[in-house]
């Protein structure tokens, strides 16, 4: 399954178009992010499908921000699924990455993964591996919306109550690039008790996902308490789309909630 990606990366590295390729490698039985710099050393490259498709995903575009900052003059390649590409596009609009210095190499997700993710677009614009799977709508959001208001509250509180405040959702999020995080502001967030103050802790994060979340679902995967954060943020994205006709990673331009620059004055 990786032949086409390897071939493409080899070409890019040999031609000197990229300094390195940020992808995934399998070593000692584990899959993890890896920066491939040698065109003759791509043997360990994998796409992150261990037991099931896409079960070993990483926020590669988030890691790329750090690499690009250390080597601002270099161009890097990066492995992208549909969601990662949406992430790149959104990070460009927030000036976290320079599109001229990034060459994405795309893979399309198999149907099984698209179904599990309820993904609106399980493929990047261009891809060298895989086939275009069918888009899926958000059944999980519809399910919660169908409850009456009291049951919605009870259901979310039950989920949030399991939170161990590990910050995993924020730490893995490719859209969480702020230097200072409200969720760590002592004036707003009490320390020393579990769960954190609910539902505020989770709703604060949900608000900050407005105009940002590109629905990669890594938060949901990483959550040790299995809180369905993805469903919450899917709804956040739906609201922004309904109200402002903007969906991060799908629409062009900046978030309608961006208070810097012209977006705020429109």
């Amino acid at each position: 399954m990786t032949q086409n990606v390897k071939k493409k990366v080899k070409e890019l590295l040999e031609s000197g178009k990229i300094k390195g390729f940020l992808g995934l490698c399998q070593k000692n039985g584990h899959i993890g992010p890896h920066l491939f710099c040698d065109p003759d050393d791509l043997e360990s490259m994998v796409l992150g499908d261990e037991e099931r498709p896409g079960d070993s995903r990483y926020p590669l575009n988030k890691l790329l921000i750090h690499i690009a900052r250390s080597y601002p003059d270099e161009t890097f390649g990066v492995l992208v699924r549909g969601c990662d590409e949406r992430g790149l596009k959104t990070l460009y609009t927030w000036n976290q990455l320079n599109p001229d210095k990034v060459i994405p190499v795309g893979v399309a997700c198999p149907q099984e993964l698209a179904d599990a993710c309820e993904c609106l677009r399980p493929y990047p614009e261009e891809f060298v591996e895989g086939e275009r799977a069918e888009e899926r709508s958000s059944a999980s959001v519809t399910k919660i919306s169908g409850l009456d208001v009291k049951d919605r509250f009870t259901s979310w509180m039950k989920e949030f109550a399991r939170c161990i405040k590990c910050y995993g959702c924020r730490d893995i999020c490719p859209m969480c690039f702020c230097n200072e995080c409200s969720l760590e502001a002592e004036e707003l967030i009490h320390t020393g008790e579990l769960p954190p103050e609910i539902p505020i802790f989770h709703l604060v994060r949900a608000v900050h996902m407005a105009g940002r979340c590109i629905d990669c679902g890594l938060c949901n995967e990483v959550c040790p308490a299995d809180i369905p954060l993805r469903t919450l943020y899917k709804k956040v994205a739906d609201i922004i789309d309904e109200e402002f006709n903007y969906r991060p990673g799908y629409s062009e331009g900046k978030s309608p909630l961006n208070i810097l620059g012209s977006a705020a004055e429109e």
Partner: peptide
């Protein structure tokens, strides 16, 4: 803008 968004988020979270 924020209020328009928040009203709908509150409703989804189970707060009138």
């Amino acid at each position: 803008k924020r209020v328009r968004f928040l009203k709908k988020l509150l409703a989804f979270s189970g707060i009138e």
